[in-house]
């Protein structure tokens, strides 16, 4: 799984950090998303999908690897 974030769409809600703190963080100054792990381990995939679904700004995508599809 590859994670992509759009910092221009991000509204700093922090929902992604609540869902997957190992993968996402927020910039100290304005709370905008920072990616901690671009290709997180499979064990975190459900948390990342939860972050994608909950993001109120539609600012997170994942590209699933072929073997997962």
């Amino acid at each position: 799984m590859k994670v992509i974030v759009d910092q221009n769409k991000c509204v700093a809600s922090g929902q992604c950090v609540l869902s997957a703190p190992e993968v996402f963080d927020q910039r100290a100054e304005d709370g905008i998303v920072v990616l901690r792990a671009e290709t997180p381990p499979e064990g975190l995939a459900d948390d990342v999908r939860q972050a994608v679904a909950l993001c109120p700004a539609q600012a997170i995508w994942v590209e699933e690897q072929e073997d997962e599809q």
């Binding site: 922090g14 609540l18 927020q26």
Partner: peptide
């Protein structure tokens, strides 16, 4: 109020 990380923690 311009405190996104703090409010997320306070949640």
């Amino acid at each position: 109020w311009n405190a996104p990380r703090q409010v997320r923690t306070l949640r």
